[in-house]
Structure formats: C-alpha cells, structure tokens
Amino acid sequence: MSVINTEIKPFKAQAFKDGKFVEVTEADLKGKWGVFFFYPADFTFVCPTELGDVADHYEEFQKMGVEIYSVSTDTHFTHKAWHDSSETIAKIKYTMIGDPTMQISRNFEVLREDEGLANRGTFIVDPDGIIQAMEITAEGIGRDAEDLLRKVKAAQYVRAHPGEVCPAKWKEGEATLAPSLDLVGKI
C-alpha cells in the first residue's frame, strides 16, 4: 500500500540534535514542511555519504522552511557516538531520530522486518502532515540532496499554485503545466 497522500502516523522518539538529546513527535511537524530521510544504520558506508550530502544542503532546506529528520533503527545514543567520531556526520545540524522500536520505520513502510533495519526511504511531508512524495532505493543506491531539493521545490510550488503541475526535470522558475482537455495528447 502506498503512503502517498496519507497523514503521517503518531510517533514519539528520542533524537540527537545540536549536541543535545531531544524528543520528537508528529506534532512537531504541523505547520512546517518536513523531510524524513530513512537509512539502514549508523557506522556504515553509503549512509554517511548521503547524510553528509544532506548536511551540505541543510541551510538551503532551512531557507525553504523545511526541517530534515534522518531516521534509522539505531538509538539516539548511537547517533551521538557517530556524530562524535565521524568528520562527515559531525557536519549534521538537523535532527537525527533514533527508532529502536522500529515504530516510525513501520509507519512509513520502510522496515525490513527480518533485519530490523530501514530501507533507504525519503518522504516529503507538507505542513498538514500529508506525505506528498516518496523515494525508496535499494541498499547500495545512494540518494542526491540536490534532486531532493528540486522535488521539495516542486511540492511547494504545486501546493501554492492549485491547478498547476510540474513536469519532468522541472526546476524553479521554469514553465509548469495546467492540466486541461486542451493538453490531452499534445504533450
């Protein structure tokens, strides 16, 4: 079952952010854009490259009113230890949620039950808590923060401009489409 256009389910979790342990719930997202960035595990190989890439673009996400939440089934203590020991992870300023109960990973349907690990999953959540976009990749396929930025901009544009849609490879400032009978068969 797809989670697109569904409201995120309630959760409560411990996280590591800005050198502190904090509690995060679904209520923290209300009224804001959010990205949930699931990854299999701390102290691995592809994961730090992805998390570092998102960290390098975090300021840009913030300017767009988007909060980033990375999530793995590790604990918030493990996130801190990784943050303290890895130059790449030390750059992270966004919230790193621990999901040792696997509730959040199950809620977003990315949990590998037989392994207790999350798949690589990215979810764009609108200010109403509705999932607008998702991407799931296999273990060895890393994601690109610049493409995620593009998708968030498209989701924000579509929300702000009802009746318009963003075509493939759309970038901010480019032409959009207004679906109508006149366009059928002409694209």
Rank of each mutant, 00 (worst) to 15 (best):
M1G: 14
S2H: 04
I4V: 15
I4H: 10
I4C: 10
I4E: 14
N5G: 09
E7I: 12
E7C: 09
I8G: 14
I8H: 12
K9D: 14
K9Q: 15
F11P: 05
D18V: 15
G19M: 12
K20P: 08
V22L: 09
E23C: 04
E23W: 01
T25L: 08
E26K: 13
E26F: 05
L29G: 06
L29S: 07
G31W: 02
G31H: 02
F36K: 02
F38C: 03
Y39I: 07
A41T: 05
F45M: 11
V46Y: 03
P48K: 06
P48C: 06
D53K: 01
V54D: 00
A55C: 00
D56N: 13
H57W: 05
H57K: 14
H57D: 13
H57C: 07
Y58W: 13
E60Y: 09
F61I: 08
K63G: 05
K63P: 03
G65T: 13
S70H: 05
T75D: 07
H76W: 15
H76Y: 15
H76F: 14
F77K: 08
H79R: 03
H79E: 11
W82Q: 00
S86K: 06
S86C: 02
E87G: 11
I89M: 12
I89S: 09
K91M: 08
I92F: 00
K93W: 11
Y94R: 04
G98W: 07
D99N: 07
M102T: 14
Q103K: 13
S105Y: 04
R106K: 15
R106M: 03
N107M: 09
F108L: 07
F108K: 01
E109F: 12
E109V: 14
V110P: 07
E113T: 11
D114A: 10
G116N: 03
G116T: 02
L117G: 00
R120E: 08
R120Q: 06
F123S: 09
V125G: 00
V125N: 01
P127Q: 07
D128G: 13
D128N: 14
I130F: 08
I131F: 04
A133W: 12
M134G: 11
E135F: 08
E135T: 14
T137P: 13
T137K: 14
T137G: 11
E139F: 15
I141V: 15
D144R: 05
E146I: 00
D147N: 06
D147E: 12
L148E: 08
L149E: 07
L149W: 02
R150V: 05
R150N: 11
V152S: 02
V152K: 00
A155T: 02
Q156V: 03
V158L: 03
R159K: 15
P162R: 10
P162Q: 11
E164K: 14
K169G: 09
W170Q: 02
K171F: 06
G173P: 02
G173R: 01
E174S: 12
A175C: 03
T176G: 04
L177I: 11
A178D: 06
P179C: 09
S180Q: 07
S180I: 08
L181Y: 12
D182V: 13
D182N: 14
L183G: 12
V184R: 13
